[in-house]
């Protein structure tokens, strides 16, 4: 299982701009490298990232082979309501990893 780290404020006031951060452990093998015997190393990357806030998509990203290992994302949103913020990564072959955090908005 890939290690995931999330940073979501546990509380915020309605209308606050909050920062969300997400880090996932993944080698992001580009597919352009060769091993010590000259053999091609197959591409093995995460291609999609999506963040939803109470079911609504608030941030999306596409990753290519140039993205470094263990991709780190940080972005902002406006705190609107108490709910679940879910982070989802999708591998090139469709495997999905996700994790979520709760935020209380007053």
């Amino acid at each position: 299982m890939a290690s995931i780290r999330l940073s979501v404020p546990s509380k915020a006031a309605s209308g606050d701009v909050i920062e969300l951060k997400a880090l996932i452990q993944y080698p992001m093998e580009s597919g352009y490298r060769r091993g010590s015997r000259g053999e091609a190393i197959a591409r093995d990357i995460i291609t999609k990232f999506e963040c939803t806030y109470d079911g609504e998509v608030i941030f999306k990203a596409s990753f290519g082979p140039g993205v470094a290992a263990n991709p780190f994302l940080s972005f902002h949103t406006v705190a609107t309501k108490t709910g679940t913020i879910t982070f989802k990564w999708t591998h090139q072959h469709g495997e999905v990893w996700s994790d979520s955090a709760e935020i209380i908005v007053t």
Partner: peptide, 8 residues
Amino acid sequence: FANPGFLW
């Protein structure tokens, strides 16, 4: 948080 070593 951002230090990737913390994944390990």
